[in-house]
C-alpha cells in the first residue's frame, strides 16, 4: 500500500485535483456531474487522448515530435478523401488509410532522427513545414466536407444500450438508463489504444527495448539493442495514432481541413508532462498521461459549464503545467532524491 502511494504519488494527486475541480464545478453547476456530461468530456477528449499515447512514447525515447499536428491534418485529409470516395460506406477502409498515412509520415520522422542524429525537435520542425506546405499546396487550402454514411456516424456510435432494467436505475437516471457501457465508439477506441499501449510497453519485448533505449542509450547499445528500431517504432506509432485520431475527428465533425491540428503538439506535450513523462526519456505513465488529458479536459468543460469565459482555460493550463514540473523538480532536488543518486556514479 505504501509502495503504491510512493510510486503512484503523481497519479493520486492528479486524481485528487480532478475530483476537487469536479466537486467545485458540480457545486456551481450540478449538470457537471451527470453521466451525459462525463461521457461528453470523454468523447470530446478521445482524439487528444489517443494522440497523447503516441507523444508519450516518443518522449520516452528522449525525443519530441512537433509535427504531430501536421501528421494529423494530412491523414485527416486522406481519411476524408477515402470516406467521400466511398460515400462513407467503408469506414474501416477510411480509418486504415488514415492510420497508414500517419504511420508513413511518422516513420519518415523516425528515420531522419535516427540516421542523421539531429535533435528530433529540429527535424520535426522541418517536416512540419514540409507536410503542411505540401498539404496546402495539393488542397489549395480547401476543406473536404459533406461526409456522410456510416463513416460519419462511427465515432459516436453506441454499440451497447444503456442499462435500464431496474426501476431504481430508471428513477436515478431520469429515465435515461445507466450509460456506463453505452459509450461512443470513439471512447472505446481510446480505451483500446491505452490497453494496446500498455501491452506494447509492459508486455512485449520490443516495448521494453524502447524503454531501455530511452533510459540509457549507451547501455542499450552495449546490449545490442537498436536505437533506430526504437525510434522508428515510437515515431511510427505516433503517426499511426495521429491517423486514427484524425479519422475519429473527421467522423465527429464531418469535415476535414488542411489547417486541422494546429497547435496540438504543445497541448499533447503538456498532457504528457503533467502526467509525469520525463523529457530525459525512459519514464512513461499511461495512467498519468490519461489523467493529464482528463485534467485539461475537465478544466475546459468546467469553465464552459460554469460560464467562466473560455479564455481562463489557457491560464489554468499554464499554472497546472508549472505546478506539475515544479513539484517533480522539487522532489528530485531533495537530498537522497533521484538526482542525488544519478550523479553519484559520474566520478570516473
Amino acid at each position: 500500500m505504501r509502495k503504491i502511494l510512493r510510486e503512484k504519488a503523481r497519479e493520486l494527486i492528479l486524481i485528487g485535483v480532478i475530483i476537487v475541480i469536479g466537486i467545485i464545478v458540480t457545486f456551481i453547476m450540478p449538470a457537471f456531474f451527470s453521466q451525459l456530461n462525463i461521457i461528453n468530456v470523454l468523447y470530446s477528449n478521445a482524439v487528444f487522448g489517443i494522440m497523447a499515447m503516441g507523444m508519450m512514447l516518443i518522449i520516452t525515447t528522449g525525443n519530441i515530435d512537433v509535427s504531430v499536428g501536421a501528421q494529423y491534418a494530412v491523414s485527416g485529409m486522406v481519411v476524408a478523401l477515402v470516406a467521400r470516395a466511398t460515400g462513407g460506406e467503408q469506414p474501416l477502409l477510411a480509418i486504415l488509410a488514415g492510420m497508414g498515412t500517419g504511420m508513413a509520415l511518422g516513420l519518415m520522422n523516425g528515420l531522419i532522427v535516427a540516421k542523421l542524429s539531429i535533435p528530433a525537435i529540429v527535424v520535426t520542425l522541418g517536416t512540419l513545414n514540409i507536410m503542411r506546405g505540401t498539404l496546402n499546396l495539393i488542397t489549395s487550402g480547401n476543406w473536404i466536407d459533406g461526409l456522410t454514411g456510416p463513416f460519419a456516424k462511427f465515432a459516436n456510435l453506441r454499440l451497447l444500450k444503456p442499462i435500464n432494467g431496474l426501476g431504481v436505475i430508471h428513477a436515478i437516471t431520469g429515465g435515461k438508463g445507466l450509460m456506463v457501457f453505452a459509450l461512443p465508439l470513439a471512447v472505446y477506441i481510446w480505451i483500446l489504444v491505452m490497453v494496446v499501449t500498455y501491452i506494447f510497453l509492459y508486455r512485449t519485448g520490443v516495448g521494453r527495448d524502447i524503454l531501455a533505449v530511452g533510459g540509457n542509450k549507451e547501455a542499450a547499445r552495449r546490449v545490442g539493442l537498436s536505437q533506430t528500431k526504437a525510434y522508428l517504432l515510437a515515431f511510427g506509432y505516433m503517426g499511426m495514432l495521429a491517423g486514427l485520431a484524425s479519422a475519429i475527428a473527421a467522423s465527429k465533425i464531418k469535415i476535414a481541413q488542411p489547417s486541422n491540428g494546429t497547435g496540438y503538439e504543445m497541448k499533447l506535450i503538456a498532457a504528457c508532462v503533467i502526467g509525469g513523462t520525463e523529457f530525459s526519456g525512459g519514464v512513461a505513465s499511461i495512467l498519468g498521461t490519461l489523467l493529464g488529458v482528463l485534467l485539461l479536459g475537465v478544466i475546459d468543460n468546467g469553465l464552459v459549464l460554469t460560464k467562466v469565459p473560455a479564455y481562463w482555460q489557457e491560464l489554468a493550463t499554464g499554472v497546472i503545467i508549472i505546478l506539475a514540473v515544479g513539484s517533480s523538480a522539487f522532489r528530485t532536488m531533495k537530498p537522497g532524491g533521484r538526482r542525488a543518486i544519478k550523479s553519484g556514479g559520474d566520478r570516473k
Binding site: 540509457n216 547501455a219 542499450a220 525512459g282 544519478k342 553519484g344 559520474d346
Partner: peptide
C-alpha cells in the same frame, strides 16, 4: 562491470539482470 554506465535506471532490477537474455515477443 563499470560503475554506473551499463545499466538502465528506469527499468526494474529483474529486467536489468535479464535484459537481452530472452527474445520472446511477449515479456
Amino acid at each position: 562491470i563499470y560503475q554506473d554506465v551499463s545499466l538502465f535506471p528506469n527499468l526494474s532490477i529483474a529486467e536489468n539482470i535479464c535484459k537481452g537474455l530472452y527474445h520472446d515477443a511477449f515479456v
